[in-house]
Amino acid sequence: MRKVAIIGAGQQGRSIAEALALQGEYGVSITDKDSAVLNKFSGLVNHENIKVFETSAQTVRDADIIILATPIDKFSSVLHEIAGHVKPGAIVTDVGSGKQKSIYEISQNLPDGAVYIPSHPIAGKAGVGPETGSADMYRNQSVVVIPQGPAKAEEQVVVQKMWGDMDARITPMSALAHDKLYGTISHFQHVIAFSQTLAGEDEKNSGSAEEDYQKAYNTLLDTTRIANASAPMWQAIFKDNKASIQEASNGFKARLEELKAALESETSDKLLGLIGQAHNFRQGIPEDRPREAIWSEFQDFSAEKKQTVMFRGKVCSTRLMRPARYRWQNGLQPPH
């Protein structure tokens, strides 16, 4: 049985511990600096393959794999605590969101004899703490494992297998590409969600017609879902990946200016071109599982692509909805 030590019993720590313990091939030891978090974990998770310890040093003893599931700014202190207690050849990995920063922090403080393989699970739920974790957190989710070259090939396979055993999909990617990609589609996405939530509230308070607010409400619910977030966690992520977030903001603002100019032009052709590009690109991104049919798909009389969607709890094809488009083409009023 492979021994895995987890430092940090919050959402990610609990999810990893449960997923590995249930898998059956891993013996898990776990700790958290915060005794309240650790007590909460112990109250929530009870499995014969999981042992809870009070210190990091006790937790990592005999571990084959050590997972740092704390904020990145805690990495160096954790590594200093466990130095001298780590088994030779032990693999250290982490779940940090800013990969360049994680690699810098861990490489500087890695205990002698340990090998570092950086990883980042692209999975999470609103809120923090062990109560928000679950054994199925990584199922069908992507986990980025940063390639470390042939010298660490064996250790890399061990880390990939561990995530694979939690039913995750492994995505190899450089740290730079990771930070750029997730700086844009996750970290900056949160900046947008916070800004949009506050701007929505400004609009509501400015005396805008309730009707106008309601029109945009469904979209607002989608784009701001992630605004219900942990302030300490996101404040740390913004700091750890600041450069990529700034770059994403510049790119976003340039695109928004382009869209605004198109919106102000004399015809809607340019706007249609941009929206069409965005539409085509978004259609190429599959859903994790069949999603519920969206209103506007009834209006999409030009789409030839068959999509699998859910309706009334059943999986069906958008092809079944096509009669609607013929009705529309025959001069019936489109809905609004």
């Binding site: 979209t219 989608d222 539409h279 978004r282 991104i285 969206i294 506007s296």
Partner: peptide
């Protein structure tokens, strides 16, 4: 965040 772009 990009789901609105699935509209026609």
């Amino acid at each position: 965040g990009s789901a609105a772009m699935l509209s026609h």
